[in-house]
Lab assay of single mutants.
Amino acid sequence: MTFKLIINGKTLKGETTTEAVDAATAEKVFKQYFNDNGIDGEWTYDDATKTFTITE
C-alpha cells in the first residue's frame, strides 16, 4: 500500500510517499524521516486516505 506524508513545517514543506505493508510500518518510516530532517510537530493520520500530516 502507498502512504502519503504531507509536511507543513516552518522550514520544510512538501509531500512524499512510501510503500508499506500497513500504517504502523509507514509511521516508523515517516518518523525516521522527521528525525533525519529535524522536523518536530503535531501529526495526524487519516486512514481513509492513508495520509499522515505533520505540522510544526
Score class of each variant (00 low, 15 high):
residue 1 M to Q: 13
residue 21 V to S: 12
residue 46 D to S: 04
residue 14 G to S: 09
residue 9 G to I: 15
residue 34 F to E: 10
residue 47 D to Y: 05
residue 8 N to S: 07
residue 54 I to W: 15
residue 50 K to R: 13
residue 5 L to G: 02
residue 4 K to C: 08
residue 27 E to A: 09
residue 51 T to D: 00
residue 2 T to H: 06
residue 29 V to F: 14
residue 39 I to E: 04
residue 24 A to L: 10
residue 56 E to G: 04
residue 10 K to S: 12
residue 22 D to R: 01
residue 14 G to T: 14
residue 27 E to T: 04
residue 34 F to R: 07
residue 46 D to H: 05
residue 46 D to K: 02
residue 9 G to R: 06
residue 39 I to S: 04
residue 14 G to Q: 14
residue 17 T to S: 11
residue 26 A to G: 01
residue 33 Y to M: 13
residue 27 E to Q: 07
residue 12 L to P: 03
residue 54 I to M: 13
residue 19 E to Q: 14
residue 17 T to Y: 14
residue 48 A to Y: 09
residue 52 F to V: 01
residue 46 D to M: 03
residue 2 T to D: 04
residue 48 A to Q: 11
residue 5 L to E: 01
residue 31 K to M: 11
residue 12 L to R: 03
residue 32 Q to S: 08
residue 29 V to G: 03
residue 15 E to W: 10
residue 55 T to R: 05
residue 19 E to V: 15
residue 26 A to S: 01
residue 32 Q to K: 13
residue 35 N to R: 13
residue 47 D to C: 05
residue 24 A to K: 11
residue 36 D to P: 07
residue 48 A to I: 10
residue 11 T to G: 08
residue 37 N to Q: 13
residue 16 T to E: 07
residue 36 D to Y: 06
residue 51 T to C: 03
residue 13 K to T: 08
residue 48 A to T: 10
residue 54 I to D: 00
residue 54 I to G: 02
residue 52 F to T: 00
residue 15 E to Q: 07
residue 14 G to D: 10
residue 47 D to A: 13
residue 13 K to V: 11
residue 27 E to F: 15
residue 38 G to T: 10
residue 52 F to D: 00
residue 40 D to G: 08
residue 3 F to E: 01
residue 5 L to C: 14
residue 30 F to K: 00
residue 53 T to C: 06
residue 26 A to K: 01
residue 31 K to C: 05
residue 44 T to M: 09
residue 5 L to R: 00
residue 41 G to V: 07
residue 39 I to Y: 09
residue 53 T to F: 07
residue 50 K to H: 13
residue 10 K to Y: 11
residue 4 K to P: 01
residue 52 F to G: 00
residue 20 A to M: 02
residue 38 G to L: 11
residue 5 L to T: 02
residue 8 N to W: 09
residue 40 D to I: 13
residue 37 N to L: 15
residue 53 T to W: 06
residue 25 T to D: 10
residue 34 F to N: 14
residue 6 I to N: 03
residue 56 E to V: 14
residue 11 T to K: 08
residue 22 D to T: 03
residue 53 T to M: 06
residue 34 F to M: 15
residue 28 K to I: 11
